[in-house]
Computed example of a mutant assay.
Amino acid sequence: MSLPQPVPPSWKDLGKSSNDLLGKDFPFHHTSLEIKTKANDVTFKVAGNNTAGAIVGDLEAKYTNKIHGVTLTNTWTTANVLKSQVELENQIAKGLKLDILSTLAPEKGTKTAAINAAFKQSGLHTRAALDVFKGPTFTADAVVGRDGFLIGGETAYNVTEGNITRYAAAIGYNAPEYAVTVHGLNNFRTFSASYYHRVSPDIEAGAKAVYDSKATTGGVALEVGTKVYLDPAAFVKAKINNVGVIALGYTQALRPGVKLGLGLAVDTQKLNQVSPSGPAHKVGASFTFDS
Rank of each mutant, 00 (worst) to 15 (best):
A238E: 03
V220E: 04
T226P: 06
V236Q: 09
A221Y: 07
G249K: 00
Y250M: 06
A247I: 11
A215V: 08
G244N: 10
V220W: 05
G249S: 04
L248E: 03
K237E: 06
V224T: 10
Q252W: 11
N242M: 03
R255I: 10
A234M: 09
K227G: 00
I246A: 14
Y229R: 13
I240C: 13
K237A: 12
K227Y: 01
R255L: 15
G218H: 04
G244A: 09
L222P: 03
I246P: 05
V228M: 06
V236T: 11
A253T: 15
E223T: 08
Y229E: 10
A221R: 08
G249I: 01
V224E: 02
L254H: 14
A234S: 15
A221P: 04
P232Q: 05
I240T: 11
L254K: 15
N241I: 01
V220K: 05
V224P: 00
V245H: 06
T251C: 14
V228L: 08
V224M: 08
V245M: 03
Y229S: 14
A233H: 10
D231I: 00
T226Y: 07
V236C: 09
T226M: 10
V236H: 06
V243L: 07
A234I: 06
A234K: 07
L254T: 14
V220I: 08
K239C: 07
E223S: 03
G249F: 00
K237Y: 11
T251W: 13
A238V: 05
Y229L: 10
